[in-house]
Design a protein around this nucleic acid. Structure first.
Lengths: 193, 193
DNA sequence: TCTATATAAGACATACGTGTATCATAGATG
DNA sequence: CATCTATGATACACGTATGTCTTATATAGA
């Protein structure tokens, strides 16, 4: 579908608006999936009309956010996930590396809540789950993850510790490095002394 | 404020309606925080007007759900959390014991999203976090939890594994016992073999 | 059976979110 | 400077959720 956009992103004004909108949207939707288009525009410091000039609908905005988040996560993971490398190392390094963009990563996991009626976005959600699941299964085959825990369980758990990491950064309690260390430690070793 | 209710809960009809409404509300709101009053009434199999006879507003419904969920969680935890008992045991037993009512427990964590404008509900949410934090601090003093992990981090992590447990039960992958075992194992021992 | 009341169904006013359109203005480009 | 265009502000139509109210029906309790 995607009708022609009347906006030229090479215009610095448009570029600034678009960036501000995407950031505001991620930020607001993460803490309140019901955030309205008005909220998002206001938080980005632009008019609501401008938001609609950049994204035809709320659904398209969410879809672009999903795509952008997927790209950000993939950019980090693709370089790590080479077949020769132990999967557990990919997960460990991945968690650490993803902390600076943990908001993007977690957004993908929230897609179901945010956009359960947006088929395109849900596809991205499932793709994300699937990629993680494959790495986890590889780690199981390599005997580096407890096989008595189901893959689905571990995928959820990875998202959880990533989310806790993001939350710690977001609330100003930790920097990305600390959050990454905590997340890896919690995921693999648990909280026992 | 709470204006006088025109409903007599001792009337079996009213009692059945109220129960159906509370259950339907928990169920729907957990999987879609935006569920409408119409949705909830329909899912409970009663008329929308009846919903408004039992709860003056959406906010009041959420508040009652929060209170009811808090009671359900507390009923489980209060019996375990005696000062003589090692805190780590309270947490372990607590997680296992709470799995059958994990939906109620998780609802408390969702309160922020569902009712971030409802001050009363948010108070209940913070109270829940605070009670958990106290037990965690006790566990640290008893050297049964890694002291290098912050209390806030651990509270969030407990939230998270409980959520993953609830999700596993809810999606039909596990029964409460399995979910409890997985959660405890993941929290204390991590996912390493 | 008779009375009280909880309920279903639906009309209604109100508020809010979405998406479209218009117009004057400020900023970018040449 | 002159032109192009992204923007802000605002009005509008439309759909949907909230909360109130009325009326007829069904069910509990005496």
């Amino acid at each position: 579908m995607s009708r022609k956009k009347s906006i030229n992103v090479s215009d610095p004004r448009a570029h600034r608006s678009r960036d501000a909108l995407l950031n505001a949207a991620i930020e607001l939707l993460l803490e309140n999936p019901r955030a309205s288009m008005s909220d998002i525009a206001a938080h980005a410091g632009v008019g609501r009309a401008t938001l609609y000039r950049h994204f035809e609908s709320r659904d398209e905005l969410v879809l672009e956010l999903a795509a952008e988040s997927m790209k950000a996560s993939e950019a980090v993971l693709k370089s790590l996930n080479v077949p020769e490398r132990p999967a557990v190392e990919v997960i460990t390094e991945g968690i650490r590396a993803i902390m600076p963009v943990a908001d993007r990563f977690h957004f993908l996991m929230l897609l179901w809540v945010i956009a359960s009626e947006n088929d395109e976005a849900i596809k991205i959600y499932y793709r994300q789950l699937d990629e993680l699941a494959q790495i986890v299964e590889r780690a199981k085959i390599e005997k580096s993850i407890n096989e008595s825990l189901s893959t689905d369980w571990i995928v959820m758990l990875i998202d959880s510790v990533t989310y806790v990491g993001w939350w710690s950064i977001h609330s100003g309690q930790m920097n990305p490095k600390q959050a990454g260390d905590h997340a890896v430690q919690s995921l693999f070793g648990g909280i026992s002394p």
